[in-house]
Nucleic acid binder design. Structure first.
Lengths: 265, 265
DNA sequence: GGTTAGTGTTCAACTGACTGAACAGCTCCG
DNA sequence: CGGAGCTGTTCAGTCAGTTGAACACTAACC
């Protein structure tokens, strides 16, 4: 919602893009993705991104030709090709395939709702979901984002970062997004939890994103030099959750994390 | 793997793109998505797309900045942002949300493996999957593509098209892709089936893509002027499949299709 | 009806992105 | 060692994509 102009020469912070048209096209896609209804007109986009209408028209024509967006009368929406490309990305992440295989034959996890997620700035993106048990139906879908401070996976993932990186993302007095009365409020609160997480080797979320729901999560040791940071989580109903069950799930999550982190599954 | 050059002035067939850089960037993404390993170097891409290396370098820089691709040393892969964008596309398709809701409370379908798919040229793209029953675990994932001639949804979807459109996509002597001994071989065979599908109102697939597996599918009446063509399918094991069960599933599929086609769910 | 505010489209001038050859770094192999 | 073959990067000239004002259109409003 902040002003997100994409002008030719932004200011002086960074050098101009080596292919402005591409950068601008990406901005168009993001604007469509983050808009409330997912439908914007040419003028909407031109205004929001600070691009001349005539240029925007050209961008949209090219994007439409590539099926990256659809035009419905005067309104533009994201295109189906994005589903293909997103799927292609996921299918190349061997970790996702391994994740499904492991969940299916794990004694405890096979009956639970398990997810694999990735760190993206101060958010977590869910990459895949295994649903062994229809008791907990998640409303969140693959590709959805969630602030790190609100979920166990998020906390598990940033617990792996260096302190000064965390401090940069979350100053002590930072106001964190709040979803339930138990949500963490400040960067300081978050940092206090990280110490515990590092010690016990897993993260716990106690109704911090949804009342009545608890989560356990571990992080996956990054395989390869520049692979993404992956995390695993199990979701359970607080009403039926027990410590013994939790211990079992953590044990299997750690096992899965180890196998994902190991290049030779 | 046909030659897919993206030059400034393709030939004479179509006018040049109004934003070539964007068209080329899209071609880069597609090349990465359809490559065997998903990893290509700058030179690979420049060669495959017929773009000068220096230009390709600029494109890749811009794409990387937008997180649409990742660079790992000399190799480029698709970027995580694509997962986000793909998810944003799906989350805006009200049909997908409605699909999940319906499957969960349908008497028969709630225990089956149901999918919703979309027509894309001569392929079908799977948009969402409901798994009520772990008996049939599909290897295919959301976003995967499948030739229309090989699956029930595909046949159900093109049965809705006009004859001359089908004839254009599949000439009588067209060689269709083959996965099992029962796969359809020619455009003529496909067209013969369409007549049956139109009459009975649903499509049947008898081990044409996977031996031991059968599929039932119906198409969704397109809501709105320019909405995508959606189709629904149930997958079952041939060994346990019965006609009565099939009749029940078709009944519920049609119900779901009607509710999806109706703007006021 | 006329006015206003909105839409998207057109077009020629001009500025900046694209080009391609030359460069620099790397691994391999005789 | 030295050359061949590969990588990606640099840079100045030029050609084409971008620009913004003017246009055409529809819808809403006195």
């Amino acid at each position: 919602m902040a002003d997100s102009r994409v002008s030719r020469t932004p200011d002086g912070s960074g050098s101009a893009s080596p292919a402005p048209a591409v950068t601008r096209a990406a901005a168009v896609l993001e604007a469509l993705a983050s808009s409330a209804t997912g439908r914007l007109t040419l003028s909407d986009l031109a205004r929001e991104l600070g691009i001349p209408k005539s240029s925007t028209s050209n961008l949209l024509l090219a994007l439409e030709e590539a099926r990256l967006i659809n035009r419905q009368g005067a309104e533009f929406t994201l295109g189906r090709k994005l589903v293909e490309l997103g799927a292609a990305y996921l299918s190349r992440l061997d970790e996702v395939q391994e994740f499904y295989r492991f969940c299916e034959q794990a004694p405890t996890l096979s009956g639970e709702t398990v997810r694999i997620a990735m760190l993206d700035g101060t958010n977590v993106i869910y990459l895949a979901r295994y649903e062994g048990h229809p008791a907990v139906r998640l409303t969140s879908n693959i590709g959805d984002k969630m602030p790190v401070s609100l979920c166990a996976v998020g906390k598990a993932l940033i617990a792996r970062l260096h302190d000064h990186d965390v401090a940069e993302m979350f100053p002590d007095d930072a106001q964190l997004p709040v979803l339930t009365p138990k949500s963490l409020r400040t960067g300081a609160e978050l940092k206090a939890q990280l110490a515990v997480i590092r010690e016990q080797g897993y993260a716990f979320e106690d109704e911090e994103s949804t009342t009545g729901v608890v989560c356990l999560a571990v992080s996956v040791p990054t395989r390869g030099a520049h692979g993404p940071s992956l995390g695993l989580s199990v979701t359970a109903l607080k009403a039926t959750y027990s410590e013994e069950q939790g211990a079992l799930m953590v044990k299997e999550l750690k096992e899965l994390a180890r196998s994902l982190g190991n290049p030779m599954g």
